[in-house]
Design a protein around this nucleic acid. Structure first.
Lengths: 113, 113
DNA sequence: TTGACATATTCCCATATAGGAATATATTTG
DNA sequence: CAAATATATTCCTATATGGGAATATGTCAA
């Protein structure tokens, strides 16, 4: 089997750095495709294709105005990702504590040189 | 160009559902490869290969004890993901507010039937 | 209608999978 | 040492990509 489709879920969709960049820009509000093309310095077809993937997984919404298409982030789609990462929050808190403790122990040990 | 390597960063590594399952299990503490094989009902080579990817991006740490390898999650590696998703938190709060407001408006509008 | 502008799609291709099967490596035990 | 156990790696293949180039679709303006 190959890798799961980029359109299979939000996790796969945002694995691509360019798509995260696009979402970062859309976080500040609506933007047309051309806006993104200029700001991200990508080819227009590339942007359109990335937006298509984001649209398929529900990470962006579109609105047409004249011949322009205005995209906005649908943050709700990112929420599952946030929730999943959150389940590890207690771990990195603990693990950092342990690293810190070890460092402090080391400092005490070598203070008698 | 093809998709970025699964080992290129945490985002790509956790795009694979099985790898998230593995991390979910490791969140409860250390587990041997065979533990994971049994619990996740995957083939042993499959588990080893997924663990290899997770190791390459720093999402797990290993310790050998006899012929067993004990893996543990390195939550620090998940943190960048958490931080990135967090930047959208205000958005889904706002967007939900708007959805809620629209729903309430609708309720008021139709209360005069 | 024709032309210009804005965006989307299609085609091509090099590349990286994920899983299955087989095999290799490492460690303990007899 | 050999056998057993635990894990890792290699080889294979179908599949999905992302970018570039070209083209299609849609909309406005004259």
């Amino acid at each position: 089997m190959a890798r799961a489709a980029t359109t299979s879920d939000a996790f796969n969709a945002v694995a691509e750095p360019r798509r995260r960049e696009i979402l970062d820009h859309l976080a500040s509000g609506e933007h047309s495709v051309n806006d993104l093309v200029i700001r991200l310095r990508l080819e227009q077809p590339s942007v359109s294709k990335h937006l298509r993937v984001l649209r398929d997984v529900g990470l962006v919404r579109v609105r047409r105005h004249g011949r322009k298409m205005f995209y906005q982030a649908n943050a709700e789609g990112i929420r599952p990702l946030h929730e999943w990462t959150k389940t590890f929050e207690r771990l990195w808190a603990h693990q950092l504590t342990r690293v810190k403790e070890r460092a402090e122990q080391k400092a005490r040990d070598s203070s008698g040189d």
